[in-house]
Computed example of a mutant assay.
Amino acid sequence: MKTLVVIPTYNEIESLPHTLDRLFEWTPRADVLIVDDGSPDGTGEYADSRAEEDPRIHVLHNTRKGGLGAAYLAGFRWALEGDWEIICEMDADGSHRGRDLPLLLRAVEDGADLAIGSRWVPGGAIVNWPLRRHLLSRAANVYANAAIGMGVADATAGFRAFRRTTLEALDLTGVQSAGYCFQIDMTRRVLAAGLTIAEVPTAFIERELGSSKMDGDIITEALTQVARWGAQRRLQQVRELLGRRRTPAHSGR
């Protein structure tokens, strides 16, 4: 199935070349869209130079840093104007292994509407993460599942493959999450649409080059948004319960 991998970048000049090389090593027929948020370190210019040499690579330049979610949404909109059948998310920092991408593609080809490269299912792994990051990721997924009830082990994972029809079925205009909360938002929307999710065990490798974009604002956004979605879910459950109680019982003859 024709595949496009969307890779958001901001100051990834050190890691992006290695990420592209490893991706094409394992999935040589895939296309790549690099969405650069105006990186001051020359990442966008490097992406342009690679695109001039390789027709599989495309570049979309954002004029300002809008966050992970905005970059992916811009990439999705661009992708849906083409004829790609599978549209993927992948980090530029090397944390997602190119060798694992075929596993996600196979899950979609086998029928999943969304395949998630999961760290927290049997067979998944994290390499070189400090204890604090382990605890933060675990707690975020426990919190999201408790609040929203998704039943997904790794709803915050950013290594994903969407069937084209999945993105077409979602109201992407309503997605406002900017940071890593974007992944939780997309997960809950896929489930709310009645679509299927497959969690594929993959390894997550701590970046060796560049610096992490995780900060306090991103964590605060996730906590606030998940709490709001949880409250909306509870309110909907109460409305449904009251609706059933008000419906008169019908007796058969």
Score class of each variant (00 low, 15 high):
Ala144Thr: 12
Met150Glu: 07
Leu135Ala: 02
Leu114Thr: 03
His134Tyr: 15
Asp113Cys: 14
Val142Leu: 09
Ala146Val: 13
Ser137Asp: 15
Ala144Leu: 08
Arg138His: 12
His134Ile: 11
Val127Ala: 01
Pro130Lys: 07
Ala125Gly: 01
Val121Met: 01
Ser118Thr: 14
Arg133Leu: 13
Asn145Cys: 09
Val152Leu: 15
Met150Val: 15
Val142Gly: 04
Trp129Ser: 02
Ile126Thr: 02
Ala140Ser: 15
Met150Leu: 14
Arg119His: 05
Ala146Ile: 10
Gly124Phe: 14
Ala147Thr: 04
Gly117Ile: 08
Asp113Ile: 10
Arg133His: 10
Gly111Ala: 12
Leu135Ser: 00
Val142Cys: 08
Ala147Tyr: 07
Gly123Thr: 12
Gly117Thr: 12
Leu131Cys: 05
Trp120Gln: 09
Ala147Asp: 06
Ala115Pro: 06
Pro130Gly: 10
Ile126Tyr: 03
His134Trp: 14
Ile116His: 02
Pro122Thr: 06
Asp110His: 11
Gly117Cys: 10
Trp129Ala: 03
Gly111Arg: 13
Ala144Ser: 15
Ile116Gln: 01
Asn128Met: 06
Arg133Pro: 05
Asn145Trp: 11
Trp120Thr: 08
Ala112Asp: 05
Val108Ser: 02
His134Pro: 02
Val121Asp: 00
Arg132Ile: 10
Gly124Val: 15
Asp113Thr: 03
Gly151Asp: 06
Pro122Arg: 04
Pro122Cys: 03
Pro130His: 11
Ile148Ser: 05
Gly117Asp: 06
Gly149Arg: 07
Ala125Leu: 01
Ser137Pro: 07
Trp120Glu: 02
Ala140Tyr: 08
Val127Met: 02
Glu109His: 01
Val121Pro: 01
Ser118Trp: 13
Pro130Arg: 09
Arg138Cys: 13
Ala112Tyr: 06
Trp129Glu: 00
His134Gln: 07
Ile148Met: 11
Gly117Lys: 12
Ser118Gln: 14
Asp110Gly: 09
Ala112Leu: 13
Asp113Glu: 06
Gly123Leu: 12
Arg133Val: 07
Ile148Cys: 11
Gly117His: 14
Val127Thr: 00
His134Glu: 11
